[in-house]
Each structure stands twice: as structure tokens, then as C-alpha cells.
Amino acid sequence: MREELSPRGTEAWQPKIVAFLCHWCSYAGADLAGISRFQYPPSIRVIRVPCSGAVNPFYIVKALQCGADGVLVSGCHPGDCHYLAGNYLARRKFALLKGLLEHVGIEPDRVQFSWVSAAEGQKFADVVKMVTDRVRSLGPAEKLVKRGRGR
């Protein structure tokens, strides 16, 4: 998250979105999107995780605190989890986390969840595009971003 691609807040501004992708489905879906040359905005920074169920809500909040403009968590479709129920368990946590963040005033569109299978390269590109558009319309994240005190 260190490099700045273009000045914040300008037309050309590209949001930085941290994407937690499950190894078995969404990461493979992203791979397929790449191989198939489906175009999507260069806004995501992918972190591969074993399962969407392994995404501690803390990771999401921490990403926001570290300056991510948005967070995307993507896993296998319900019923297709490699670990049988990881995504089901994740879904409950995410439902409450999303509500909580919105409750304290963080724009709901900054945190998104999706199910993308290994065969859905096009869907992955679409999801990234949609998430990027929504985050872009919100502008750079200001809330919850730790600024630090150094200079």
C-alpha cells in the first residue's frame, strides 16, 4: 500500500482496495480473469487467504485503518467451500461487521463481499469493476485512517 499511482481525489485517482481472496475459488477466479485478459481496474491489492472463513473481521478493520479505500472479501459460493462450511461461517461474521461499520458512520460501500468461483473469471472482473466504481464515487478514505504523527 505504499506506492501512490496518481494524486488522491483527482479524476484519475485510483482507489486502493485490499482484496482478500480465498485460495480455492476467488483467487483462481482472479487468475482466470488474468489469463483470459478480462480487463478490470488496477485498484486491488490481493491477499490470498486459505478460506473466506479465515478472514478475521479484524483484518478488514485493520486494512481500513492502514489506509485502504475499500476492502473486498471474496470466497467460494455457498455450498462450494473447500472446507465445507468456511464461507457460511464467514457470512455471519461479515453480515454483522458490515452492519457495525455502517452503524458507526463508515460508508457501507467501502467493505464488500462476493462469491466468485474458479470458473468465473468474467464475474471477478465485473466484481472488481463494480467495487472500484463504488469506492471511487466515495472518494479517498478519510475515516478510521491512521495518520500518524511523524512528518
Binding site: M1, E3, G67, R147, G148, G150
Partner: peptide, 27 residues
């Protein structure tokens, strides 16, 4: 130690056209 998480954002001038030079700052 409190490293600034977004330190490079407020960081020094970057050479024209090139990527911003990362800096590690903190308190």
C-alpha cells in the same frame, strides 16, 4: 514505537514522473 502507517503518502518529493520515494516515518 508508532510507525506512521501511511507514511509515504505525506512523504518527500518524488522525482518527476517517477514513483514517490518511500519514507519510513514514525514517532
Amino acid at each position: 514505537e508508532e510507525p506512521d502507517p501511511g507514511a509515504s503518502r505525506s512523504g518527500g518529493e518524488s522525482p518527476k514522473g517517477g514513483p514517490e520515494r518511500p519514507r519510513l516515518t514514525g514517532v
